[in-house]
Computed example of a mutant assay.
Amino acid sequence: MTTLFLSHPSGLEHDTGAGHPERADRLRIIEQMVEHERFQNLHRALAPGADTPALLRVHPEEYVRAIENAAPKEGLVRVDGDTIMSPGTWTALMHTIGGASAAVNEVMRGNAANAFVAMRPCGHHAERATPMGFCFFNTAAIAARHAQAVHGAERVAIVDFDVHHGNGTQDIFWDDPSVLYCSTHQMPLFPGTGAVGEVGEHNTIVNAPLSPGDGSEAFRAAMETRVLPRVDAFAPDLIVISAGFDAHRLDPLASINLEAVDFAWITEKLMGLAAKHSKGRIVSVLEGGYDLEGLAASSAAHLLMLMSA
């Protein structure tokens, strides 16, 4: 089995306007990166269109229709202060969700060792019925629910190492004992959630905030003392990674000082837990990462480690 890499050209058609950090160049740099010979054994495939039932397991139909209707025929529209839609956004969203569902299918069926979905828009700030923070639909949450509904996964762990807290994922699974949500993130920083005391109704929310200026040592300590032991104890049937690379030291939207090797390190640790509890099954979905050099190096390190399975 190999690592599955899912992407689609529609991800480039989600236009956020000049100067917006969440731009199409983010996908272009990842696509260029995987052309290198070291990725020659990577199994690449096009992300299919959305699995509508998968989308509706997380988001109400009225909300989904509202987002679809908000997409402009031309120009750009803002659904909040920094979350922008263009004529290509809806199609990109459909292939992002479809890619996540397809990744879960292939991994849960044993056709791929693990998978990385390189699509945009990102998702972890999207709550059940609220878009925000560049996000419309919560890709990681949709992947988790799809694994449960279609493949019988009883417990899914979502590990989010994006530098911003995944308020949307936390909101969706706040009162659900079958999904463990763990996050490292900078505080204070957008969106303002993610305090240690936010644990959910069933103690299945694990927040490990980092301070501005923290680097590898603090990140690894947070993972080793708070996150990894909880994932181990939860013994998930699948691990979903919200793979944001904006904790890299070059990223302009935060001030955590990680290097690419740190993303390889946490990927390896999660692969060890997946091997122990979930037959190695990991589905990783792209979240943030806004410096192109940092994004390329970090996503390469993440993907190469996944390919070592």
Rank of each mutant, 00 (worst) to 15 (best):
residue 1 M to S: 07
residue 2 T to A: 14
residue 9 P to C: 12
residue 10 S to H: 10
residue 10 S to I: 05
residue 23 R to H: 14
residue 26 R to F: 10
residue 28 R to I: 14
residue 36 H to P: 01
residue 39 F to K: 06
residue 43 H to C: 09
residue 47 A to F: 04
residue 47 A to M: 04
residue 49 G to R: 04
residue 51 D to H: 06
residue 51 D to E: 10
residue 55 L to Q: 04
residue 59 H to P: 03
residue 60 P to V: 12
residue 62 E to N: 11
residue 66 A to C: 10
residue 68 E to L: 06
residue 71 A to H: 11
residue 73 K to G: 15
residue 78 R to I: 08
residue 78 R to K: 15
residue 81 G to C: 09
residue 81 G to T: 11
residue 83 T to Q: 10
residue 83 T to L: 12
residue 84 I to A: 04
residue 88 G to A: 11
residue 95 H to L: 05
residue 97 I to E: 01
residue 102 A to C: 12
residue 103 A to G: 08
residue 104 V to R: 00
residue 112 A to H: 01
residue 113 A to W: 05
residue 114 N to A: 07
residue 124 H to N: 09
residue 125 H to R: 08
residue 128 R to H: 11
residue 128 R to N: 02
residue 131 P to A: 15
residue 137 F to R: 01
residue 152 G to A: 10
residue 154 E to C: 00
residue 166 G to I: 07
residue 169 T to G: 05
residue 170 Q to Y: 02
residue 173 F to G: 03
residue 178 S to C: 04
residue 180 L to H: 01
residue 181 Y to I: 05
residue 184 T to S: 05
residue 186 Q to E: 15
residue 189 L to I: 11
residue 189 L to K: 06
residue 198 E to M: 09
residue 203 N to E: 15
residue 204 T to Y: 00
residue 207 N to I: 08
residue 214 D to W: 06
residue 216 S to T: 15
residue 218 A to Y: 08
residue 224 E to N: 14
residue 228 L to F: 13
residue 238 L to T: 01
residue 242 S to R: 02
residue 244 G to I: 05
residue 244 G to K: 02
residue 247 A to I: 08
residue 248 H to T: 07
residue 261 V to A: 15
residue 266 I to E: 03
residue 271 M to C: 07
residue 277 H to S: 07
residue 282 I to V: 13
residue 284 S to Q: 02
residue 292 L to T: 12
residue 295 L to Q: 09
residue 299 S to L: 04
residue 301 A to W: 07
residue 307 M to G: 13
